[in-house]
Simulated scan of single mutants.
Amino acid sequence: MTSVREVTPNLVRVVASGELEGWNDGGPGAHFKVFLPVAGEVVMRTYTVRDFDREAGLLTIDFGLHADGPVTAWARTAAVGDRFAVAGEARPGYVPSAGARWCLFFADHCALPAVASVLDALPADMRAIVFVEVTDPADETEFRSAAEVQATWLPESGPPCAALLAAARSVVLPEGPGEVWIGCEAGAMRGIRRHVLGELGLPREALHSRAYWKESVPNHSDHDTGSDDG
């Protein structure tokens, strides 16, 4: 690692270099496997490509400090010079379709690096409406984007992502063509997805959803898009 710094009280940014020539970063919001040495073992987890500077060969990863698990323990003590491995390529991220004029984001703290990465890449003629649920108000950050960004930060209240689900149920979609991006706990993601498809009537091809974790399930599958529930 070439640098480590605290972005917010619950988000640690690591910048790493190494054998990254030809590495496929997957685009904005892409995710990939990280292999970390923890207590003499190798722990594998899925993380977002926060940024990849191909010319400089620098990969940026934001590690959320969500619980007292092995990766959180590693991130709390990470230091320049520490080593870890990544998968050979990242899975594709998210880029709105050419006809979209707005994009609505529903995310919790785990999905915050992905949302920030996507916003970084949005064009100036795009409107982004962002709802993010956080457990600590100190984790609110400034988004960088050429697009017009309207961000609402929701303090966690009740079960995880309950405030996010309530926000989805009260939102009114903007006029014109647009898309919805959802990234949060698996059960809440499905609830938001059902509302967006059913009550708001958004076509399936304009909905992009992924579970970033599942309550009481360690290392939940990163293939869970909720499409099996409709």
Rank of each mutant, 00 (worst) to 15 (best):
R127N: 07
E142T: 14
A111M: 06
A107R: 01
A79W: 04
A78F: 08
D68C: 00
P174W: 05
V49Y: 11
A124V: 13
L154A: 08
A146M: 12
A78V: 15
S145A: 15
F106C: 11
A163I: 02
G187Q: 13
L173K: 05
E142N: 05
A128T: 11
E142P: 00
E179R: 07
R91T: 11
A79T: 09
D120P: 08
R101F: 01
P70M: 03
G64K: 02
L59G: 11
S117R: 10
S97G: 15
V80T: 14
T48Q: 02
R76Q: 13
V130H: 06
F105V: 09
T135C: 01
Y94N: 02
G64H: 04
A162T: 08
R127D: 14
F105L: 10
A167T: 11
D120E: 14
A124I: 08
V118W: 03
A186F: 12
G69K: 06
V130D: 08
V134S: 01
A116Q: 05
G183E: 02
G64V: 14
L164V: 09
L104I: 06
V171C: 13
E185K: 04
A166K: 14
P159H: 09
A90I: 08
G93N: 09
T152G: 01
V86L: 08
H66Q: 04
L65G: 06
G158L: 09
P96R: 03
C161E: 13
P113D: 02
S170G: 15
L59W: 11
E179K: 08
A56W: 02
A147E: 08
A100N: 06
A73R: 12
A116G: 13
L173I: 08
S145G: 09
L58I: 06
P123A: 09
D108K: 02
A163W: 01
V71A: 13
P113A: 02
D125R: 10
A121G: 09
S97A: 15
R144F: 07
V149K: 02
E133L: 00
C184W: 01
E175R: 12
F131L: 01
G81V: 07
L164T: 10
F63W: 12
L59E: 11
F84W: 15
T152Y: 11
W181R: 07
A90Y: 04
G81M: 09
G176H: 09
D53W: 04
G64N: 01
R101C: 00
A85P: 00
T48V: 10
L104D: 07
D139T: 01
A73F: 02
T60P: 02
P160M: 00
F63R: 04
L154M: 10
G88K: 10
P160A: 03
V118M: 13
F52Q: 09
D62N: 05
L164C: 07
W153Q: 00
A75S: 10
A167S: 13
V71W: 04
V149W: 05
A98Y: 03
R169W: 06
E133H: 00
D82W: 05
A78C: 11
V49W: 08
L173H: 06
T135G: 13
T60E: 15
T77A: 12
G176E: 06
L59S: 12
A138E: 14
C184T: 07
P177H: 01
A128P: 06
F63M: 12
H109S: 12
C110L: 10
D108N: 14
E140C: 09
A138V: 01
V134Y: 02
A166E: 15
E185F: 03
A121D: 13
S97L: 12
